[in-house]
Design a protein around this nucleic acid. Structure first.
Lengths: 147, 147
DNA sequence: ATAGTCAGTTTATAAACTAAACTTACTTAA
DNA sequence: TTAAGTAAGTTTAGTTTATAAACTGACTAT
């Protein structure tokens, strides 16, 4: 099976990954969350090849995750900024960073990366259930398979 | 820059992605969360090539995310099951699925995939702050860049 | 004029992926 | 006791993708 056929899958995780699941797209989005918005800055920061960056940015724009916002004319140059759909990835990003800190590095107390502005504390994100507000543990989730 | 150099990065998201960020690893883990544990089952279910599956499973075992648990001898055959480190990805998986449902599909009411056993409701996961318990919005997170 | 910036495009080369057949080590049914 | 079947790979050949580095075009600043 080709990766490009994955958007047909009967599973929201598969469809999400058909957009985000390649080697650089997630990293580009991470930079967008950190305020890096321009081609040259992304290329220099990620060390990605320019060909692939062009390709991935075009995909993300087409998927409605990034939006091109011109910041000059003659020649036209764009900032690549997160749309609402892109900003909706915030939760995924936070949990991915938390996993990297705690599970991969084994040390949650790395140099501060996020602060929760509303309460002022260093952010330790966790996933909660909208119905009961409790933290969702893996063992308490009954997954129903369908593709 | 090569993808393989990414594990050196000074960012927990980058280090997480150096393990998970290729085209199939996340899909393999999704299947593990859904209870698919064997080579043939994963291969048939994902439609991935056997060469890549072998490679990715070996990587995940080496990274301590999956554990091989023998289920027969002569010849030895293994189940690939999630370790604690692997189970810690639960939050990432849930948020990724939620993003797929709401942002990509635009319809949160797809056929039920997860139920929260402790409260009995269909799971609508969100990311909360451990300090204040409030939902974490993208605008309320001050990200400090460092690589 | 000359150099510099930004966002690409082109090209040759290198790496990764796919599909399909093959291998090993068994088990079960005829 | 041969013949199929199962499970987990490995091998091979061919295709697809990615990389690095140079090049292009449209400007701006000195």
């Amino acid at each position: 099976m080709r990766w490009s056929e994955l958007d047909q899958a009967d599973c929201p995780i598969a469809r999400a990954l058909s957009i985000l699941g390649d080697r650089w797209t997630f990293m580009i989005l991470r930079d967008c969350f950190f305020g890096v918005h321009r081609f040259e800055a992304l290329q220099a920061n990620l060390g990605i090849s320019r060909t692939i960056l062009r390709d991935r940015l075009a995909h993300l724009v087409q998927a409605g995750i990034l939006v091109q916002r011109p910041y000059q004319d003659r020649p036209v140059r764009y900032d690549y900024v997160l749309s609402a759909k892109g900003k909706a990835l915030n939760g995924v990003m936070l949990m991915l960073g938390e996993w990297g800190r705690t599970a991969v590095d084994g040390q949650p107390e790395t140099p501060i990366r996020h602060r929760h502005q509303t309460c002022g504390h260093v952010l330790r994100p966790y996933v909660a259930c909208a119905a009961c507000g409790e933290e969702v543990m893996a063992k308490d989730v009954r997954a129903v398979r369908a593709g």
